[in-house]
Design a protein around this nucleic acid. Structure first.
Lengths: 222, 222
DNA sequence: CGAAACCAACTCCTCAGACAAGCTGAGAAC
DNA sequence: GTTCTCAGCTTGTCTGAGGAGTTGGTTTCG
């Protein structure tokens, strides 16, 4: 499917390129609409739409009467896109960083409600690993891991994990599809071990077991 | 400082609100520009700019001849905003997770060029810690930490760190301003120790020293 | 001389109208 | 039944006009 880009979109790309190349410093004013329009050989409204698009991406900011100003040197990377493009091993290493630290914190902060969530999600995971479609198994697995993150009681780590989930989910499903043996379904014990370490308030052990499990996952795809 | 919002921006907000409320389903077409313009009581070009802005935020997509379509129910969570709102301790714990893992990976993957970057950034940091304005010192400190991340050779971790940087930078400057003693300037040794462990290819030591240093930073703000 | 008031030139903001370019679905032609 | 054609819709682009806000220099006044 081809896609012809409208002029306004092309203009936005061109401006973004110039901004990224440092043609205008942070906080500096861009040339006026009429000047830019003449430079790029397009109409004024086209330039305005391009500027609006970059304003939506938080790169430019226009103030009536004053001008258009650079407020960021590049578009804030769309994390979904970054993760889609990134090597799955890089993604899994990021996940490992987040989750081992979360396991460590969870061991100190877990509440009775967190432990209850562990029990439920582990039971679900066990059932799903026996006779369910791949999708269900993947969801059950992710649900347990999210329970661990939740137990860390850290909003940033939770949000980070949620950002990673879509990418991880897809990778897991692909992996299961390739691997007829479903070998990854047999690591229920590893998950129980992580939960136990958190329950026993042993940060180092929780982190170590989490690291071990996720290292194995990473190794299995590379 | 008050800010009057242009009509186009208000229109974008209104559309975003309606989209979020489920008025139009995912993938569905919005009413035509002329219809929307009449509905909101603004000109057509104003509506076009509002649509452009939401297109920049990846909420809408317009196809010439066909219409404007919803491609997401809400703006993709802006990480800058999430971090701004989050507790600084939560942010620092996230940073700790990323950086200790990066230090561990760096110990295995560092190249001669990485080591060179360590030397330069450490020297800069030393100079800046002695007789420079706070801003410079903060930049020098962050530059060293970024060199560590870079040495891990993992695109996701690097991008994560860069996302955190603005928030951390502000917190550091605030902290230095409050703390007349500049006590955090005296930990040059800790930074050298991290670099040494990476140079000596000792993953566990690198991770441990990184964790120790960042734990101290976290403790100092809570 | 110094500070406040003024003002002209610049900027972005909004509208309206015109035409081009592209898509869609209904009906005609085969 | 399938393909072709086309009218009527959509968004894309340009232009000209006037409104509104900012900025920096000039004038005026104490």
């Amino acid at each position: 499917m081809i896609r012809r880009h409208p002029l306004a979109e092309q203009a936005a790309e061109e401006l973004l390129r110039r901004i990224g190349s440092g043609e205008w410093a942070l906080g500096q004013k861009l040339p006026g609409e009429t000047t830019l329009a003449a430079q790029l050989g397009v109409g004024r409204s086209t330039i305005r739409e391009a500027v609006r698009e970059l304003a939506g991406r938080r790169v430019l900011e226009s103030r009536q009467g004053a001008g258009v100003f650079v407020i960021a040197h590049q578009a804030t990377e769309d994390w979904d896109k970054v993760l889609r493009r990134a090597d799955i091993t890089d993604v899994l290493e990021g996940r490992l960083a987040i989750e081992t630290e979360a396991a460590r914190l969870a061991a100190s902060r877990r509440t009775p409600a967190d432990l209850k969530a562990f029990r439920y999600t582990l039971a679900d995971r066990k059932r799903a690993s026996e006779n369910s479609p791949d999708d269900w198994y993947v969801e059950a697995d992710l649900a347990f891991h999210r329970a661990v993150i939740t137990a860390a009681h850290n909003a940033v780590l939770t949000e980070l994990f949620d950002t990673f989930v879509p990418r991880i989910r897809r990778a897991m499903i692909d992996m299961l599809r390739m691997d007829e043996q479903h070998r990854h379904r047999h690591d229920q014990a590893a998950h129980v071990a992580i939960a136990d370490a958190i329950r026993d308030r042993d940060p180092d052990l929780a982190a170590a077991r989490s690291r071990e499990h996720l290292s194995a996952v990473r190794s299995s795809v590379s």
